[in-house]
Design a protein around this nucleic acid. Structure first.
Lengths: 127, 127
DNA sequence: TCTTGAGCTGGAGTGCGCTCCAGCCCGTAA
DNA sequence: TTACGGGCTGGAGCGCACTCCAGCTCAAGA
């Protein structure tokens, strides 16, 4: 798969794909005769997983660490599991915070609705 | 309240408090005779609210917009409500993503556990 | 009186995570 | 055969959200 295809498939820009390779998030793919990257199909799944770690707040350094462990194969199962377990805790905390804030938004929205209708009534009384 | 007290109360650094004032997130507080900031008590609550918006992913520019609307008082109730409603939708999406990813972490952790015990069995069989 | 420390200002610097650019090579279609 | 589009490299630049710094003033305690 060419880099432009992968870019479309993943939503990452071509520059970002090359950048991810440079910092070690993606394995350097084989090249064709002209020296152009030729990605294996399964990199799409890996990039999707990286995207989820990213979107849930795992810092670059940790994603790189995970990618490096992955490259070392079976001997790093335990470390990888521990890393994901730690991230799960981060997610748990974020979930709690988001739920709190969601409830707060709900309350505030109601408060503003009340204030808006009071303002309206005040206006009517003026007429 | 002096800036050091506010810093301790909110967990924001003194530099960050001055920075927030500069960009319009916090109202410029009155000064004492020596020109030092003297914050009103209620700024703590406001900063806490800003913190929640921040931690749930509202960008600086939007927080500044909200702060400016707030300064204009009652005439901006509707705009403020709409802004919070929009943020509520962002939070909803993030919640969904976090929940998905949490489930994924659970599955992956289980997979790694299996792999680890299989590796152990293989090792035993070697002996 | 002197020293210490908290606070002040304007502006430079930082780390993260990309994003863009110049200048090059190469394969395909007209 | 030449023009074009896509890909390549190394390195510079960027936007966000702070963070740090030099050099100053001022108040209060020893």
């Amino acid at each position: 798969m060419k880099i432009s295809t992968l870019s479309e498939a993943t939503g990452l820009s071509i520059d970002t794909l090359r950048f991810y390779e440079k910092i070690g998030l993606i394995d350097p793919p084989p090249r064709d005769d002209a020296g152009r990257r030729d990605y294996p199909e399964d990199v799409i799944g890996w990039i999707g997983f990286l995207g989820q770690l990213n979107a849930t707040g795992m810092p670059q350094s940790e994603r790189i660490r995970y990618a490096k462990l992955r490259r070392r194969g079976a001997e790093t199962y335990t470390e990888r599991r521990e890393l994901l377990e730690a991230h799960r805790e981060v997610i748990r905390e974020r979930l709690a915070l988001l739920q709190d804030t969601m409830a707060l938004m709900d309350r505030k929205v109601e408060i503003y609705r009340d204030l808006e209708s009071n303002a309206l009534i005040a206006q009517e009384n003026e007429e």
